[in-house]
Each structure stands twice: as C-alpha cells, then as structure tokens.
C-alpha cells in the first residue's frame, strides 16, 4: 500500500496520546491504593491531560488531510454497525471528550470521593478516568481493526495488528509519561520509566511476531486466480493505459526493495533498543535530556514503523498492474 503521511501521523499521534492517558490513569489508580504517592491534580493530571489533548488533537487534524471532502466528515459516524472506520470516528472524539473532562475535573480539584466501594472512595475524576480508559482501548481496537478486518491484505489480517497498535501506542505514551513526570511528578519517574521499558519489550515481541508471520505469508491470490487462466506461466503484457492511474498510485509504495528493507531495520532500532537505553541511562543519571531524547527517538521510529506497516501490505489488486506495456 502507499503510505499516506496523514494516516501515519494520525495513528502515531493518537497512539502516543492514548498511551500517555493510560499512564496518567494508571498512576492515579496506583495512588488510590496507596502504592504510589498521590500527585497534584493541576500540575500533573491537569497538565498531563492537556498534553494528551494536544496529541489527540494533532492526530485528528492530520486525519482530515486524508479526506477528499473533510467538510462531510461528520457523515463518517453513521455506519458504525458495519464499518470499523466509522467506529473509530465515534471512538476518537468520545475518548477526547471524556479525557478532556477528566483533565478539567482534576484541574478544578474535584478529587473528593463521591462514591464508596467498601473503604475505597471514588472521585468524579476517577470515574471519568475509568470511562476514558474503556474508550481508549475501544479506540485502539477500532484503529487496529480498520486494517486487520480486510482479509485479503494478509499482512494486516491478524490479531497481531490490533495488539501492535495497543502496545506500540502504550509504549510511546509511557515513555512520554516518564519524561513528563520528570518535570511534573519526580517521584513517579522510576515507575513510568520501568513500565515504558516493559511495554516496549512487549511491543517488540508482538511486532517481531508479526514480522516473522508476514515473512512466511503465501499470497492466496495469484495472477491465475486474478484472471482465471489455468497455466503455470501467465504474464501481463499491458495494463490498459500508458500513464498512471489511481490503481498504480494508491496501492504501491514506489520505493526500491532496499529502501523498504532498511526502513524495517531503522524502526527496529529506533523504536525498541535505543529508547530503552536512553530511558535506562536517563533513569540512572536522572537526566531530563536523555528522557526527552528517548521520546523523540521512539516517535521518529514509530513514524518509520507505520510507513513500513503500510509499505509491506501487498494488495491483490497489484496483480492487475504489473506491466505498463
């Protein structure tokens, strides 16, 4: 497939925003059970939620560049019964809305318990955070399923696709949370740093598994099934036009195989080992620069990862467009 930068930025930006939100809420739940020290509502949760909104907003903004008619985008919420894209269009603003309220309630200091379950008191912000967490995972699943549900894009048609979106987004979000905590909540830096490293390791496992799976895929469609001629050797002699068309532009990355291969190694290095090394040494030396560097390097790596994700998917329609003349 042709990697469109609008979609690359959309999926990576909302991924890091969702991951940061999960990190914030995890910290709050741990604090509820007194595992972690409680944090200042305004400085940490309020500002953190603002950061979440910035990333989600940028992602939403990027998504509009993918549309031919952005002014009709509201229509995309109508077919949620059948379309994962439509479900994502609902889940993204819903998550943004509740995450926004979560930040606002923290900002306004509405942190006194309103409901008690046993001895545990739940504040409004805590309840909103639980709803937002649910919506956050819904959004991850919707985003992943947009790609995973197309069965003839065999590289994507796997539960690993959804898992990768969840783990890669969470990894980048927890890395960001580590750097953010350095400035806003220094006693949480180690907690977030450790989780960022663990989730990055988990993402390496699932992303690696999908790379191995995709390397072994055998295409179900062949030129023989595409045109229905039973012969071992069938070649295309003409595709019906001498210039280009939507079909030659949208479904192929137009890069030499060497570039695709090197992008794979670039993302494998930039998403996984380098940020882990930066984070680890940043935690040990408590260096803000190293933590911020880890965030930037991992995000750059995720851009490469998403580019490769699209470039690797081989659409069966390409069978019909193999030779100009």
């Amino acid at each position: 497939m042709h990697p469109a930068f609008s979609v690359i930025f959309l999926t990576t930006l909302i991924g890091i925003g969702q991951g940061l939100f999960l990190a914030l809420y995890t910290g709050e739940v741990y604090a509820l059970f007194k595992v972690l020290p409680p944090q200042d509502g305004q400085q940490f949760y309020g500002m953190g939620s603002l950061l979440v909104m910035v990333f989600l907003g940028l992602g939403l903004f990027a998504s509009f560049f993918h549309l031919g008619h952005p002014e009709r985008a509201w229509r995309a919420a109508t077919r949620w019964r059948t379309s994962w894209l439509s479900r994502e269009v609902i889940a993204l603003p819903a998550f943004m809305g509740v995450a926004f309220l979560y930040g606002v309630t923290h900002w306004l200091g509405m942190e006194t318990p309103v409901v008690y379950i046993g001895s545990v008191g739940l504040s409004i912000s805590l309840i909103l955070g639980a709803i937002a967490t649910l919506l956050c995972f819904t959004l991850f699943v919707c985003t992943g399923m947009i790609y995973a549900c197309i069965k003839f894009l065999q590289e994507w048609h796997s539960p690993l696709t959804v898992l990768n979106f969840i783990l890669l987004g969470s990894a980048s979000g927890f890395t960001l949370a580590t750097a953010f905590a350095y400035f806003a909540a220094p006693d949480l830096v180690d907690f977030y740093g450790a989780w960022a490293i663990i989730i990055t390791g988990g993402a390496l496992l699932t992303r690696g598994a999908s790379l191995i799976r995709n390397a072994r895929l055998k295409p179900k469609s062949t030129i023989q099934t595409a045109i229905g001629v039973r012969h071992t050797k069938v070649v295309q002699k003409a595709q019906g036009f001498m210039g280009s068309s939507f079909n030659t532009r949208e479904f192929f990355h137009h890069m030499p195989a060497a570039v695709v291969r090197s992008v794979k190694w670039v993302f494998l290095v930039l998403v996984f080992p380098v940020p882990v090394v930066f984070l680890g040494s940043g935690l040990m030396s408590s260096s803000a620069a190293l933590m911020v560097l880890a965030v930037l390097v991992q995000y750059a790596g995720l851009l490469a990862e998403r580019w490769f994700f699209f470039a690797q998917a081989n659409h069966p329609q390409n069978l019909y467009y193999q030779s100009i003349a």
């Binding site: 031919g68 008619h69 995309a76 469609s221 068309s245 939507f246 079909n247 069966p316 329609q317 019909y320």
Partner: peptide, 24 residues
C-alpha cells in the same frame, strides 16, 4: 455522501474503484 477516504478501494481485491482527483 462520499468523503473521499478511499477505504472502500482498499477493501476491493479487484482494484476496480478509481478515485476522482477533481471531484475528490
């Protein structure tokens, strides 16, 4: 009603949908 997201063309294995670059 089409918003020009091109998702339907991804979901067609035959590549018979073509985006109109003028009408989007």
């Amino acid at each position: 009603k089409c918003i020009g997201c091109k998702y339907c063309s991804w979901a067609c294995p035959y590549g018979v949908r073509e985006f109109d670059e003028q009408q989007k």
